[in-house]
């Protein structure tokens, strides 16, 4: 164990890389979730079809395959990404597909009368979604988004296979350097668990904050 602790600088580097990878891909995934999820309920058939194609494509083929495709195959067509960018794109696009279902489900869970009410107020579609529908859909989405965030964190370990020097990658280096097997992997497992538990806690706090606002609204109605 001592030998592994001696490698703490690269463990910290790895943790930082894992966190950067998680945050950047989560932002990309969230943006894609909303774009694709809202496209699924568009008035225009072509938009809906495109969104379904995106969803089925990224949900249907494996994340590792997508990552390798972006990192190893796209350069053959002259599209180069460094490993970190390739990882962010692959993870973001993959989780974005799953997230789009959450957005769609959340928006559909908002009652019909809310749509009608905003129509009655003569809101434009943008205003209707921005001020009426989405704010009510978000509390429904948060718990599922929280689960997906943990899935996303776990997926970042796979990015070590395309040479991103994240925690998993660093554990390999320590394994080779010290000839220890259990310790390095056990240490990073615990680090992953701590990061995940912090994320769970943050999502809990956000969920509470949103649901509290909601309760006030319901109380106001009574």
């Amino acid at each position: 164990m001592k030998e592994v602790i001696a490698f703490y600088p690269i463990l910290i580097d790895g943790t930082i890389t894992t966190i950067i990878l998680t945050v950047l891909s989560a932002i990309l995934a969230l943006a894609i979730s909303f774009v694709v999820g809202l496209s699924r309920i568009s008035k225009f058939k072509i938009v809906r079809v495109l969104a379904i194609i995106y969803l089925e494509f990224f949900r249907g083929s494996s994340a590792l395959v997508q990552m390798f495709f972006i990192y190893f195959v796209l350069p053959m067509w002259g599209i180069y990404f460094d490993a970190l960018t390739a990882g962010v794109i692959a993870i973001g696009c993959n989780l974005g597909a799953y997230g789009s279902e959450v957005v769609r489900g959340g928006v559909l869970a908002v009652g019909k009368e809310q749509h009608e009410a905003s129509l009655a107020l003569n809101y434009s579609p943008y205003k209707r979604y921005r001020h009426v529908i989405i704010p009510q859909a978000i509390p429904v989405m948060i718990p599922t988004f929280g689960n997906l965030l943990i899935e996303l964190l776990k997926l970042t370990a796979v990015a070590s296979l395309i040479t991103i020097s994240d925690l998993t990658f660093m554990a390999h280096i320590i394994r080779v350097q010290t000839a220890l097997t259990l310790e390095p992997f056990l240490v990073i497992l615990v680090i992953y668990f701590i990061i995940a538990s912090i994320l769970v806690k943050i999502v809990d706090i956000i969920a509470k904050k949103f649901s509290r606002g909601r309760n006030i609204m319901i109380a106001g109605e009574n």
């Binding site: 964190l153 997926l155 370990a157 070590s160 992997f185 497992l189 668990f193």
Partner: peptide, 21 residues
């Protein structure tokens, strides 16, 4: 929760590299 919140890949490595020890 520990199993759910940690990556499958690392779990694979542990079982694959550590058990032979």
């Amino acid at each position: 929760e520990f199993i759910r919140r940690t990556p499958i890949l690392v779990q694979l490595y542990i079982v694959f590299y550590v058990l032979p020890d």
